[in-house]
Simulated assay, not measured.
Amino acid sequence: MNKKHIFVIEDEEANQILIKSCLIPENYKLTIFSNSESAIANLYKMKPDLILLDINLPGKNGLESLGIIRNKKGFEKIPIIMLTAKSSDIDQVLGLELGADDYITKPFTPQVLLARLKVTFRRFIDSSLQKNESIIDIHGLVIDSISHQVQYKSQQLNLTITEFKILLSLAKKPGWVLSREQLIQTAHGDFCDITNRAIDVQIVTLRKKLGEASPLIETVRGVGYRFKKDPI
């Protein structure tokens, strides 16, 4: 089996050493960059499977770089985990709105890093390659779990992995209310630092991408969200 190739974009040498000592023995292939410009320049040449991206970088910071990567053709859905020394909601909100799949707050242990990587890779595989998922066709919205594509009235929608997981979990159970905690678990798995506020922002971003179909996701005040049972 080919090694999973991870771009590590981190300027602090101590963190680079920690990540290498943790991941190389686990059979991951690492390419380490001290700035995002070099990493972005090598995306098409090296084609990583996942990116660990620090927020506080020299030059373009992690949030700017995240937006650039998400707009690169072929990398719209690559798993990206943000590394941050800050645990404030605003960092999570901005990162998730731009398309980050998960967050790890520094300092972190090797066990947490490995667990989050495995969960993110598993989530990516489940959402894009799983063969036994059927196509959901409801109210003009078509969700294909095999190809990881979403269409509304034959128009292709470009969703991140996390947005896709949220939409899929809601659309599977129209009329059912899913709490924010359930959606966090579905979208980000265990060991996550994601707050309820951050999941609200992801719903806002998802609704924007759904456009005319946005009313299909209803807010149940004080509880969570549900997929509309009746056509809009």
Rank of each mutant, 00 (worst) to 15 (best):
K4F: 08
K4W: 03
I6R: 08
I6S: 09
A14V: 09
L18D: 02
Y28Q: 06
K29M: 13
I32Y: 02
F33E: 06
N35Q: 10
A39D: 02
N42Y: 05
L43C: 08
L52D: 07
G59E: 09
N61M: 06
L63N: 03
S65Y: 12
K72L: 05
K73G: 02
L83C: 00
L83E: 00
T84A: 10
K86C: 05
S87P: 00
S88H: 06
D91P: 01
G95D: 11
L96V: 08
L96Y: 15
E97N: 14
G99Q: 05
L113F: 09
L117W: 13
T120D: 00
F121D: 00
R122G: 09
R123G: 14
F124V: 02
S128F: 10
S128A: 15
S128P: 04
L129G: 04
K131D: 07
N132S: 12
E133H: 14
I136C: 10
L141C: 06
S147G: 03
H148W: 00
H148T: 05
Q156H: 12
Q156N: 11
L159V: 08
T160R: 02
T160I: 03
F164C: 01
L167D: 05
A171G: 12
P174E: 10
W176P: 00
V177D: 12
S179E: 08
S179W: 06
R180N: 15
R180A: 13
T186D: 13
F191D: 11
C192Y: 02
I194C: 14
I194S: 08
D200V: 05
V201L: 01
V201D: 00
R207M: 15
E212W: 05
A213M: 13
A213D: 13
P215H: 05
E218Q: 15
V220M: 09
G222R: 02
G222I: 04
G224R: 01
R226N: 09
K229D: 07
